[in-house]
Nucleic acid binder design. Structure first.
Lengths: 174, 174
DNA sequence: CTTTGCATGTAACATGTTACATGATTCA
DNA sequence: TGAATCATGTAACATGTTACATGCAAAG
């Protein structure tokens, strides 16, 4: 089972929206997918070269890439594949699990930092969501869905921290 | 900034609980951290060799590894470091974002599969949680916290799918 | 006696990040 | 004119997975 690179997917998707240079692809990814996706130049340039060789994108005289018909077909095919479940590796839970090897203070700091990060993320997402209220393009419903995903999960994290603080305190006073 | 391998952390943590062979370390990780962590043999054996060379673990005559005092110190130090934020790469959201390139049916299938997976995960976690009710060891409070994290997030995913289905339907009938 | 589990390891590959090198253009 | 931004790429490194090779021991 060949784990197909998801970089191909994000690059093809970006070019399906709008032709761009390699640099522009990265900017587009940061601006539109930034709250849940990330690419580095070290991936983008080789990927564009490979996509070009496969005839999925083509480069014009200014160095701008655009997606070909074949590229659109490949994009749809890749999108239809189920997202490969990434093997779970949650660094926070690893620390929580082994927290008996930490002092109470350190464990508390870990929870505090987690809640702070989630609250910042939530604020960021809510700002993006408000920005979408003025968006009239029909795709906006999908963009909103990605933001809402983050909102739900940030709130889940915040609720979990509250609950976990109480759980740890109960233990302390037992 | 050197992304320290978290494999070291999981292996040291496992050995802090109980000495084991490389094979046993993996079993312990599957059994106790399985719902949020994963290691392959290809990582565990080289990591054990490296930890041994650093004097953080030692091997007895039967090939069992146990953690040294230095290893415990290193474990505590690594646990105290904030979990490095993994660069966000959410394959599901990538597909949702680019869903305009999918048919409605494919988009719906993606949401259905997501909800199913989350519900299965939730059932699995709730079973683990019930199992913890009989657990008397003091560490159990931390184990429970890791399970509860998964419960909160699985529920968040389920709620998000419900909301998103409604969002997409509203668009459809507009 | 054969399957299952225990046990150790390596090699090839895939993916991805970071740092570096280089240069053009634009804007203050 | 100097800083910021646009632009392209490579090389070294880190991390991790998968497949393969090998062999012993226990259980049925």
């Amino acid at each position: 089972m060949s784990r197909r690179s998801q970089t191909r997917l994000s690059v093809l998707g970006a070019l399906a929206t709008e032709p761009a240079t390699g640099y522009g692809v990265r900017r587009a990814i940061i601006e539109t997918l930034g709250h849940f996706w990330h690419e580095s130049f070290g991936q983008i340039y080789p990927t564009l070269a490979a996509l070009e060789e496969e005839g999925l994108v083509e480069r014009d005289s200014q160095g701008r890439f655009s997606i070909t018909d074949q590229g659109r077909a490949e994009l749809t095919a890749m999108l239809a594949e189920p997202p490969e479940p990434q093997p779970p590796r949650n660094g926070l839970l690893l620390r929580i699990f082994f927290a008996p090897h930490l002092s109470r203070k350190q464990a508390r700091a870990l929870l505090d930092a987690t809640a702070d990060a989630a609250k910042n993320k939530l604020a960021e997402l809510e700002a993006i969501e408000r920005g979408l209220d003025d968006e009239t393009r029909s795709e906006a419903v999908f963009w909103r869905a990605t933001v809402r995903y983050g909102v739900h999960h940030a709130r889940a994290t915040i609720a979990w921290v509250d609950e976990t603080r109480a759980l740890f305190e109960a233990r302390r006073s037992r």
